[in-house]
Nucleic acid binder design. Structure first.
Lengths: 218, 218
DNA sequence: GTATGTGAACTCTTTCACAGCC
DNA sequence: GGCTGTGAAAGAGTTCACATAC
């Protein structure tokens, strides 16, 4: 029944394609070739065609892709043609920034529950969401399930919160805490980790400096 | 003069190794094998050994790696043994969460400048950093350079801000705005993009649902 | 005995290049 | 003529397996 397994790298590129296409559409574009889309994204046209070929044949030879149609197909493939319910754990500064961020909702990601351990926060309504006690997390999520959990608590409690989310039936988690990623089997855990990004960027910064300091001796 | 080019994937894994090692050290561990470190991280021991072998020979056969020594070597390779100065552009909710985040400073990443376009914010002092007008960005950064720029402005202005940062001599940028990534040549641009993460997570969520809905017919 | 470091084998991913179609 | 879709080739990255060292 299953088609061939589709590489994870391919899945990861599709949302970018969808985003670029939406932009092009907003500019009034209604047909585009893999070459142009590739230039837009800094990606080879062959890669775009190969990626899309995993899912079907969406283009017209000699012409390119219909922008609207391709957006629709990508959104359907990725499951972006419906709403997904999220629960946020941790409403500190970061959690509040997440709640207030206007970029999730238009993409169909609705944060419908929020949890915290701070008694001063519990009961507050932040951006239309009532903050519940994290002590009720499991029971509360069993009553009203969500599709995805967002973890925005300090590193020290993140592993515990992730365990509780999993126990509550949440298998897809977006984690902002800087922990060592140890997803239990069957759990889809993604990290948002600016420190890790910075810590690999510095390698290249250092390289650049070294190049400048010691000009190559030919 | 240059050694062989080291794959980017390898560089990206090193900060995780360093983080796991720091944790192990805090637990009092002072020697570790690639097997154990791999179990900690969910990575094969061969991968760890191969990754490290790009940079030298840090272990002792029959014994493993000295935790402290390996941390020091990794930090030196990545350039984490010094301070890096950052400039933040955009002090809205997200920008303020970034300024207030306690996780950068202990790792040597100091946000020393902040910029915004909102007249109500300009002149304010947030977490010890005076907010300057984004109109002065280029001049200000030319006077007091930084190593890395952080972009936390709305998507509509992000491309412009990135251009100005580059013009100001900042070639390493961590961008939080959901844009189509088009780094000018020679610029090291990294995206922090939770929406993109969610949009690929849903593919797997959908898969899981389909599997559950239609049990396989053997 | 035990675990590293590393060529060789393997697997995954990207790119090429062209037949087929518009 | 122009661009897609796709096998085949090339290139990257990972894992194996073992000689080597402690």
């Amino acid at each position: 029944m299953n088609g061939p397994e589709i590489p994870g790298v391919v899945i990861h590129r599709l949302p970018m394609y969808a985003r670029a296409l939406a932009l092009l559409q907003a500019e009034g574009r209604d047909v585009i070739s893999s070459l142009e889309l590739g230039q837009e994204l800094g990606v080879t046209p062959a890669q775009i065609r190969k990626d899309l070929s995993y899912f079907g044949r969406f283009g017209k030879q000699g012409r390119g892709y219909n922008v609207q149609q391709l957006i629709d197909r990508l959104r359907s493939i990725l499951g972006l043609d419906r709403e997904w319910r999220l629960a946020l754990v941790g409403v500190g500064r970061l959690g509040q920034a997440i709640l207030g961020y206007g970029g999730f909702s238009p993409q169909g990601f609705k944060v419908i529950r929020a949890f915290d351990s701070d008694p001063d926060q519990i009961g507050q309504i932040l951006d239309g969401v009532r903050v519940e006690s994290v002590a009720n997390l499991e029971q509360s999520l069993r009553e009203t399930p969500v599709d995805i959990g967002i973890v925005a608590v300090p590193a020290a409690s993140a592993l515990h919160v992730i365990d509780v989310l999993v126990a509550s039936g949440v298998h897809s988690i977006l984690n902002y805490a800087p922990i060592v990623n140890r997803a239990p089997p069957g759990v889809h855990l993604r990290q948002i980790d600016p420190v890790l990004e910075l810590q690999s960027m510095t390698y290249y910064l250092k390289q650049r400096e070294n190049e400048t300091d010691t000009p190559a001796i030919d």
